[in-house]
């Protein structure tokens, strides 16, 4: 029971982190049709920028400076890059961000080196918030929940209570109609792209010291974020939220499952040898299958319901 509760908490923290990345990506993807491959690279950049700002000024300054920097980079990518290739179609835009992904990965290695950087939790937040069944729940995870929850609330307020939010919502489902009504859709695009990158940068600031700040963090997290976006469905922030939490829970709960399918049938007196491929697949413990489950779920979702969990149109 205790391990279930702790995993539930951890899964929620991880899911919220995923949502911070995926919410920006899903807004960009739904409006512009661009699947931004460099989105996780912006997350990585946010973590590295936060590391540098923390070293120079302090963590609280990093919490503001790094996301703003990432938002500015996002705006620059949209204005100087994506607009230029826009007339060549969505594939060209996707490939443009695909190229950016390589440059960011190598650029980060060139500036900060190949090894992880010591970006740590600030001492002010480095204590145990409460104890559940004898194990500590770090205060920093509570802080992460606070930040991501606050972000969720402000996004919701922005989208439903402000004029720009209404235009964004309209552009999500009917981009052509919005431009016909005389709104400056390219500027809305830039705003959303910069906003998405701001959120990714913020996720990098609070996620970089929760996980490890290293050059491979973008390629490790990037595919999972895509899975969340496709699984949640186009044009739906709610679907994206549910998908993020599901993926977060899968990642944390699979770690604690030791058994395999072979163990399951062993109870019925059947033993499966693991010397061939099928036997091996059946004998793999759940904890090792965990990282694969999101991809399997995404493939299943695309086969059964291509519009995703709560999407309003096909991917």
């Amino acid at each position: 029971m205790e391990i279930v509760l702790i995993s539930l908490l951890n899964g929620f923290v991880y899911g919220m982190l995923l949502f911070m990345l995926a919410s920006g990506l899903t807004l960009i993807f739904s409006m512009m049709g661009v699947l931004n491959f460099a989105h996780a690279s912006i997350y990585m950049l946010g973590a590295y920028a936060a590391f540098d700002v923390t070293r120079l000024i302090g963590f609280w300054a990093a919490l503001i400076v790094a996301p703003v920097l990432c938002g500015a980079i996002g705006a620059a990518i949209e204005i100087y890059g994506l607009r230029r290739v826009h007339h060549n179609g969505h594939i060209a835009e996707l490939l443009f961000t695909f190229g950016l992904f390589f440059i960011f990965e190598r650029g980060v290695q060139m500036i900060w080196g190949m090894l992880p950087v010591p970006y740590r939790v600030p001492p002010l937040l480095d204590f145990a918030l409460f104890r559940v069944y004898g194990s500590n729940f770090p205060a920093y995870r509570g802080f992460m929940l606070l930040i991501s929850g606050g972000m969720l609330l402000s996004i919701w307020l922005l989208l439903t209570r402000t004029r720009i939010g209404l235009i964004i919502q309209a552009a999500l489902t009917h981009p052509n109609m919005v431009s016909s009504l005389g709104h400056n859709v390219p500027r809305v695009f830039t705003t959303v792209f910069a906003g998405g990158c701001f959120l990714a940068g913020l996720a990098g600031v609070i996620g970089g010291n929760y996980q490890i700040t290293e050059p491979t963090m973008a390629s490790a997290l990037g595919p999972i974020v895509f899975v969340v976006v496709v699984f949640g469905g186009l044009g739906s922030l709610m679907g994206c939220f549910i998908a993020s939490i599901i993926m977060g829970m899968i990642q944390t709960f699979s770690v604690i499952i030791d058994g395999s399918i072979a163990d399951l049938v062993k109870g019925f007196g059947v033993s499966i040898p693991s010397d061939n491929l099928l036997g091996e697949i059946l004998n793999v413990p759940g904890s090792r299958v965990g990282p694969l489950l999101p991809y399997a779920l995404m493939i299943l979702m695309l086969l059964v319901r291509p519009r995703g969990l709560m999407g309003n149109r096909d991917t």
């Binding site: 993807f29 699947l35 010397d275 399997a296 493939i299 991917t315």
Partner: peptide
């Protein structure tokens, strides 16, 4: 599995298959 999709969904489902097979290659020895 993939021929039902096109455009971005096709890119995503092939990426998923690629990640699945890539991870399986490290996991399964036989």
């Amino acid at each position: 599995m993939v021929s039902k999709q096109r455009a971005t969904a096709f890119a995503m489902i092939t990426m998923g298959i690629g990640e699945l097979v890539g991870a399986s290659a490290i996991m399964f020895h036989s």
